[in-house]
């Protein structure tokens, strides 16, 4: 089953949510963020270069210009490798666990798996983030010694930050799967 609706993240940029239900006990949610726009790259590059040129104009030192080129290249590489996330996915398999993975624009992927025995619940929580108060989806982990206590919280979709309507959709399907096992 494939579904596509239009959702936005907390800053009003559009993102897409892709729900794939593999079986009644297993489904995958992929939140995709639009790719880096060429215009934005141009603007940032222009800013750095104009600044560098202004400095060069006063100091007349060519090292400024070459370092500007270097900074732009390294900055872009670091950005696509560590900051820019293309899509984040959440794979919930009833009775087994939850796999959270995010793939960066450079192709790098990070994946973590949380066993079902460690998971207490999945909830939507509220938090203060920068100068906003936002909703986010998180996994509550059990304290090994005391099954009623919550030892820590793992936030999901950390870089895409979808809004509440998207979270509610994911939350409902997750709860359906978790409640079955």
């Amino acid at each position: 089953m494939m579904e596509d609706e239009s959702f936005t993240d907390i800053n009003g940029k559009s993102i897409s949510l892709d729900c794939q239900s593999h079986s009644s006990l297993c489904s995958e949610f992929i939140v995709s963020v639009p790719k880096v726009s060429i215009g934005k790259v141009m603007v940032y590059t222009c800013c750095v270069w104009l600044l560098a040129y202004a400095v060069f104009f006063f100091t007349e030192n060519t090292a400024v210009l070459s370092s500007a080129i270097f900074i732009t290249l390294v900055g872009m590489m670091l950005h696509i490798h560590f900051v820019k996330v293309d899509h984040e996915s959440l794979l919930v398999i009833g009775s087994l666990g939850i796999q959270v993975s995010s793939s960066y624009a450079s192709g790098r992927e990070t994946t973590t798996f949380i066993e079902m025995s460690k998971i207490k619940d999945i909830v939507i929580n509220e938090a203060i983030y920068m100068h906003q108060i936002i909703y986010y989806l998180c996994v509550l982990l059990k304290e090994p010694s005391d099954p009623d206590a919550v030892s820590s919280v793992v936030p999901l979709f950390q870089s895409s930050k979808p809004r509440l309507n998207c979270l509610v959709k994911v939350y409902k399907s997750c709860q359906e799967i978790i409640s079955k096992c």
């Binding site: 936005t8 907390i10 009003g12 906003q132 809004r163």
Partner: peptide, 11 residues
């Protein structure tokens, strides 16, 4: 910067 319609209305 952050228009009103972007903010989720709290439950």
């Amino acid at each position: 910067w952050v228009p009103d319609w972007v903010m989720d209305v709290a439950v």
